[in-house]
């Protein structure tokens, strides 16, 4: 039999895809093409609560929008922090926003890192290139409650020493006795005293209890694919390895279709996925 007309639904007075104005409080150059912006709501409203691993849609008036991961301290309720690489006209406009400029934000969106699963266990973070900013909120969270976790091992790789973000902060993390923060670069000149090589080359030397560890991976897909494979080979089960996927995004609310990865919408079902869920998709070319 015929169903009745749809029940009336309230239509929101503001558009769910409309950005809210935020003001850039500070802009820090990380590398020649990457900047960290600290933003706060220009209307004085509270910063919407976000989880490590989630992302916002950042908007520059008259230019457009891009999906950018949150990279600040999740316990700081006064500011939103994003590290943005100039990779095109929109991200260039965002990254180059000087203090005082208004940037639109909507979000946060997506599923973040399952930090609760790290309690009582060793934690391995593997970041490649601009994969460190989405993992930085995890590190802040772990260090804020250091006693809750086992060993913390961080491996961070970049193309060259000049491409390392958060350079000063990394020096401080490397001085801490209660975590190990390894840095490696693909290529360097004689002025670099650190490791040279892929992040996967650091995995054999990383110390963790395989049956009682979680691993969070973020970086280029190829890096995550091989890092996950190697961590699994060292005994971390697939279900304890998590990685953050990146796809073209327009809407961030699972309706524009762009970010589909297998049956998942990366914006809604990700960007953080459990390795056993995406392993076969990662193995399929051009999925």
């Amino acid at each position: 039999m015929a169903s009745n007309a749809l029940p009336p639904q309230p239509i929101p007075s503001s558009h769910p895809l409309a950005p809210a104005p935020f003001v850039v409080r500070s802009q820090t150059a990380e590398t020649p093409d990457t900047h960290t912006l600290v933003l706060s709501p220009s209307d004085g409203h509270a910063v919407p609560p976000a989880l490590p691993g989630q992302f916002n849609m950042l908007y520059v008036f008259g230019v457009g929008e891009a999906a950018i991961s949150l990279s600040g301290d999740p316990s700081d309720a006064t500011a939103v922090v994003h590290t943005v690489r100039n990779a095109g006209p929109i991200t260039a406009a965002i990254a180059q926003s000087p203090p005082g400029q208004t940037v639109g934000i909507r979000g946060p969106y997506g599923r973040g890192w399952p930090i609760d699963q790290a309690k009582g266990r060793d934690v391995v973070l593997v970041a490649g290139g601009l994969g460190l900013p989405p993992l930085r909120p995890v590190l802040y969270g772990l260090l804020a409650h250091r006693e809750r976790y086992g060993r913390i091992e961080v491996i961070y790789g970049a193309r060259t020493p000049k491409d390392l973000v958060y350079y000063g902060q990394i020096q401080q993390w490397r001085l801490r006795p209660d975590i190990r923060f390894q840095v490696t670069v693909d290529a360097a000149d004689r002025s670099w005293y650190g490791d040279v090589g892929l992040v996967t080359a650091r995995i054999p030397d990383t110390r963790f209890e395989p049956g009682n560890s979680v691993a969070f991976l973020c970086g280029p897909e190829i890096m995550m694919k091989y890092a996950a494979r190697d961590l699994e080979a060292r005994g971390i089960p697939q279900s304890s390895i998590w990685l953050s996927m990146e796809r073209n995004m327009k809407c961030a609310v699972a309706v524009c279709g762009h970010c589909q990865f297998g049956p998942a919408f990366v914006c809604r079902d990700g960007p953080v996925f459990r390795y056993d869920v995406v392993r076969d998709w990662l193995a399929t070319r051009e999925l």
């Binding site: 558009h15 003001v23 008036f61």
Partner: peptide, 18 residues
């Protein structure tokens, strides 16, 4: 979807009327 206008240093977004 919406229009926006400059409003001093900021901007104001007006959703498209349904």
């Amino acid at each position: 979807l919406w229009t926006a206008a400059r409003d001093g240093d900021s901007f104001t977004v007006t959703p498209e009327p349904t």
